[in-house]
Write a protein that binds this DNA or RNA. Structure first.
Lengths: 350, 350
DNA sequence: TAACGGTTAGACAACGTTGTCAACGACCTG
DNA sequence: CAGGTCGTTGACAACGTTGTCTAACCGTTA
């Protein structure tokens, strides 16, 4: 029996025990402890029991970092997740779906918020790489994702969500933004509207551009002169959207229907319509579902995305890549869905 | 100049470069690379530049895991965060505040969801410990947190949020649940209500019990016979709350005011009141703020918690402990706030 | 010029683990 | 009973990094 390490003797409870300590207590070699802890074969039942008892007694936990340092493949069983903000409910749903899909494989998730800041994107990616994550799932913000190219060429699994990457050929999981925009247009058209307006987020955001494109193209196909459709963009918060909506309502020839292409924009539009007493007069279709949309007066009709499906798919892609899938990168599109609740079915008012 | 490692020669782009590779390329010893990378003094400007150039060229990133293995103190610059669910907006706000407070110190956050499952609590704590997190911030679920005692006695910083731990003396950051409940009661009393009802979550949740206690005690102080106040508990989702509210409304002597002690319960109550056409008749005060509460008809009066302050405080506590604060553990209480929006100011209807 | 102090540099061990391998004894097999 | 196979076991090196220590070199100073 090897002697206890003097560190262990000195400060039994404070110092975290190592395999050495367990081995000493159980009276075996440390490789035997390693085998027991990792459920490897080739250990007699008698020693297995002694080791497990020692593990219990010392409250020992393997150090995964040390293990993965030596282990072939060097998996850390962790991934990095970069979201617009962990406080954003849409991001939260995605996050949860990813967590659930990866938990089964024992993979833990580092989460961080980007706040639309390209510098943060770079810094956080670097921070995760230093921690040797097994993969990266991220919402691209920067103009180009070229900064991850070295990693990508080193076979680090990377999956983009919500938006497709620029300057890099990699897996992506996105909503069908253009189709969703078209769906909103078609719905409003089918209710007889001809004077429609578009309210959208900043045009440097790819999803916003896609939604706008889908919406306007559908109007074009139906013979609406697109140049006559007011499109107010660059709305990145509720207040801007509220003011923009008031402006629309006060215009010479106000729209009878509005498509708001993002949650905060929808909130601003709802508020303005309420303030103008036009909630039941001007039709509204939003993009992206939110809690209590059905409890509003009227209920808010919208194009719902499926964050949980985006997250699940993204997790499946990253797992496939981690498992060695070498197929060409692709883009997976999660269909959106029209949810009818009242605000989108109001008829044109004149 | 030492020779390039053969691994590096063979597979330049695939294999991740190590300090050895950088050292070889720069023609210096690896310790010099270590000094440059860690901004340690004692390196001539000439070599510093050569090393940095090599780092750039190889796209080298230090391996924090390997570093912290050797480094005295063994900090991994990561913490574990256990929340009810990362998809829950309240949790998301807390998460964000914690992330922001820790990012300044370069600490990354592992986040995971508990789903009210004590087994998950234990398993996830263990998973984080195997990754050697520098600290743990968690919402306790299990009846007792004794399972973390070994770690706590090893000086692992642990901060509990939202609920206080059982069977363990550790830092906690919570809302003033009882005071908030009392505030709701006082508000409804001040508007003349005498027939009040309580709708609450499962009684095994500490915060739910506290809110109920505060509410009922305040009623008692004002001379309302508490035994006559209907208190329906065990409501853990919106549907249960909706049904319970209908039951209340249909009772012989229906309440003129309701206190719903949790978000989902509030949603269920709102829905039932709307269905019964009683939204503007029965007063409602909820616990916990939510998006668009002011857009409802009427606006929903409620006791708002401050998740961002809870998160910030929790982060400050864990940092203090990481930095060696040895003071006695304590509980920090974040005050709640009454937000008046209409539903809580309806007068009694008879 | 010898002795000294300060700066720069790298060799080496160590962190806690796992992969490799050789040694050991028990058990066959011919 | 010699030789072989098989299941156990632990010594040892290695993973990529940092702490320690000594060596080499520089410029001073007596």
């Amino acid at each position: 029996m090897t002697t206890l390490s003097n560190r262990y003797q000195a400060e039994a409870s404070k110092q975290r025990p190592t395999m050495r300590d367990v081995a000493a207590l159980a009276g075996v070699g440390i490789k035997t402890v390693s085998r027991v802890v990792n459920d490897e074969p080739g250990v007699s039942e008698a020693k297995r029991v002694r080791v497990l008892r020692a593990v219990e007694q010392l409250n020992y936990q393997v150090d995964m970092a040390a293990g993965s340092l030596r282990r072939t493949g060097r998996r850390t069983l962790s991934i990095g997740l970069l979201l617009p903000s962990v406080a954003n409910p849409f991001s939260g749903e995605i996050h949860r779906a990813i967590e659930d899909a990866l938990a089964a494989r024992g993979i833990a998730v580092f989460a961080a918020s980007l706040d639309d800041d390209p510098e943060r994107e770079k810094a956080l990616v670097a921070a995760f790489l230093r921690r040797r994550v097994d993969g990266l799932i991220l919402t691209p913000i920067a103009k180009s994702q070229a900064h991850v190219i070295p990693e990508h060429s080193r076979d680090l699994p990377i999956v983009f969500i919500d938006r497709e990457p620029n300057g890099l050929d990699a897996d992506a999981v996105v909503s069908d933004n253009a189709t969703g925009g078209a769906r909103a247009a078609a719905h409003l058209l089918s209710h007889g509207h001809t004077r429609l307006a578009y309210l959208g987020d900043r045009t440097d955001i790819q999803t916003a551009r896609e939604r706008r494109r889908g919406f306007l193209e559908e109007l074009g196909r139906s013979g609406i002169p697109v140049s006559a459709v007011p499109a107010i963009e660059g709305l990145h918060d509720e207040e801007a959207a509220r003011l923009a909506t008031h402006e629309l309502l006060a215009s010479r020839n106000p729209p009878t229907a509005i498509f708001s292409s993002q949650n905060l924009v929808t909130f601003g539009a709802m508020r303005a319509l309420k303030e103008a007493g036009a909630s039941n007069k001007v039709a509204l279709v939003g993009f992206d579902d939110f809690a209590l949309a059905d409890m509003m007066e009227p209920g808010i009709t919208l194009i719902a995305q499926h964050p949980e499906r985006i997250g699940k798919l993204a997790a499946e892609r990253i797992l496939a890549r981690i498992d060695g899938d070498q197929s060409l990168p692709g883009t997976w599109v999660v269909p959106s869905e029209l949810i009818v609740r009242g605000s989108g079915e109001l008829p044109p008012f004149d």
